[in-house]
Amino acid sequence: MHFTVLQIILLTLLAFIKHIDYYGIPMLFVNYPVFWGLFTGIIMGDVQTGLLVGGTVQLMSLGVAGFGGSSVPDYGTTAIIATAFGVSMGKSAGLAIGLPVGMLGVQLDVIVKILNGFVAKKAKSYADAREFKKMNAVTWLGPIFFGLSAAIPVFISVTLGQSAVNFILQVMPKWFMSGLTIAGEMLPAVGIAMLLNYMPTGKLVNYLLIGFFLAAFLKVPIIGAAIIGFAAAFSTYKQAEKEGQARAAADAANVTSGIGEDE
């Protein structure tokens, strides 16, 4: 399967745009495969394959979303590659190339988030050095890194084809690949721990246990835990308001008696 130079440029660009969109600018098609399959289909001049592959990958990815900084497979990239190859090779062959590259997205995502640590530090140090223009400019490295993390795999796949993808996957040491996957699953723990450090965790540890119990034992989804949390928050608010009013009333009483003594 050979692609024209124009197709290679457009597909690489599409992947670049896809990932910048995914992480915020402007976060419309959030890596949803059904859209990216369709867009690839339009580039390849075969909308039907785009719909078929995009729809298939969309169903595979249902319920997959990266929360709290966790990394998930890049099904959008899978849709682009699988559609591009699927046009002439058929859906299954396309998916056979697209899926491993999509899985690679987890590792690439972790690498970009590590690199972004340096970007954020640099931006802050520019701010401290009062170089405000540079502070704003360096921030743009973030979206560029994310864009490249999808554009490079797509570029390699469409220029070198299936054998190259398999070769790269074989050459990488296995512990490194699965190590990055595990790191991607473990690192949200650090983010959550940081969050807990900022919150009054010591005072409210009972609610932490309730939330954990709901998810770990009862497998309640986040929205369910949020409902229980909201119920608890409601009574907390009422309680705090009551105490606040009582305090205010007591203060008022003190003030009046104070005035009385003055006279």
Partner: peptide
């Protein structure tokens, strides 16, 4: 904190 607890789980 309730939601964070459920995130851990």
């Amino acid at each position: 904190i309730t939601v964070v607890g459920s995130l851990i789980g």
